[in-house]
């Protein structure tokens, strides 16, 4: 690890000011990606701005038609939340499948969403549910937020404060874990709303994406058989030592079926 300055602001404007004033400074939430990167000397930020002392960024609230999860809420809390389990069980399941117990205790929803790892689980839930990313300055729809490989719509000094999830009629997540890392080799989140179905895929490509043909099919018939014959184009899908692109494409279909199954069960 290389030396860096460490700040622990208690107010969001102070944190934003630090991000603006110290070029290349980094926010640290749970640190589950950032700290290993620092330890391997792959990143060299001059300063870390720790979000843990900012008030009101933790916790889960029921707003009726939506559920709001504070950005600093750890995955384990979401997974164990009776509220999430009853309103959006698929999201609680997703949180319970992230990493391992240590990662789930430290890692946060805001950190995961801001990092936008192409194989992370939360982006699938956020995009699949059509959630709203609430930041220090504005609200961003999930469809406008994820911009591909580790890229998001966040400005340099913008800080995620919460994610607001609309409560679906049904939702489910199915994940095929990469054998070694247990990130999603392919993860599919499906959510059924009164006005239609959303399907979001993580792990398969350079960033989370939706699958309109599956959404259309499931909007007509919310059943695993509706997507069983829908094949995904391999263009833009990842090929690496763990899985070739056509295998990932195949898994998208299989996991979509299983996600619908999970939503129905």
């Amino acid at each position: 690890m290389k030396p860096f300055a460490y700040h622990q602001p208690s107010q969001i404007p102070d944190a934003a000011k630090l991000l603006t004033s110290i070029e290349d400074s980094k926010l640290v939430a749970g640190g589950m990606t950032l700290i290993p990167t620092l330890k391997q000397r792959l990143a060299n930020p001059p300063a870390l701005v720790d979000l843990s002392k900012l008030g009101n960024l933790k916790g889960i609230t029921d707003d009726g038609a939506t559920i709001t999860i504070g950005a600093m809420t750890p995955h384990a809390v979401v997974a164990a939340s009776k509220l999430v389990q009853s309103k959006i069980p698929g999201l609680a399941v997703l949180a319970s499948m992230i990493g391992d117990p240590a990662v789930r205790s430290r890692g946060t929803i805001g950190g995961s969403v801001a990092n936008n790892d192409p194989a992370a689980d939360y982006p699938a839930g956020v995009l699949g549910l059509g959630a709203t990313i609430v930041t220090s300055t504005r609200e961003i729809a999930a469809d406008k937020f994820f911009l591909g490989l580790f890229e998001t719509a966040l400005e340099v000094s913008e800080i995620i404060t919460a994610i607001r999830f609309p409560v679906p009629l049904k939702a489910g997540y199915a994940k095929f874990k990469a054998p070694a890392s247990r990130y999603a080799l392919v993860g599919v989140f499906v959510a059924k709303f009164a006005d239609g179905v959303r399907v979001a895929v993580t792990g398969a490509g350079s960033g989370v994406f939706r699958v309109p043909p599956m959404e259309a099919a499931l909007s007509g018939n919310f059943d695993p058989t509706a997507v069983a014959a829908i094949k995904i184009d391999t263009d833009g899908l990842t090929s690496d030592i763990h899985a070739e692109a056509d295998y990932r494409a195949h898994l998208v279909t299989v996991m979509a079926k299983r996600a619908v199954d999970a939503a129905l069960s």
Binding site: P179, S181, Y183, I241, H242
Partner: peptide, 11 residues
Amino acid sequence: LLSGSLMDYCM
């Protein structure tokens, strides 16, 4: 070495 970590080499 493409499988150079516990993230890529499956124990």
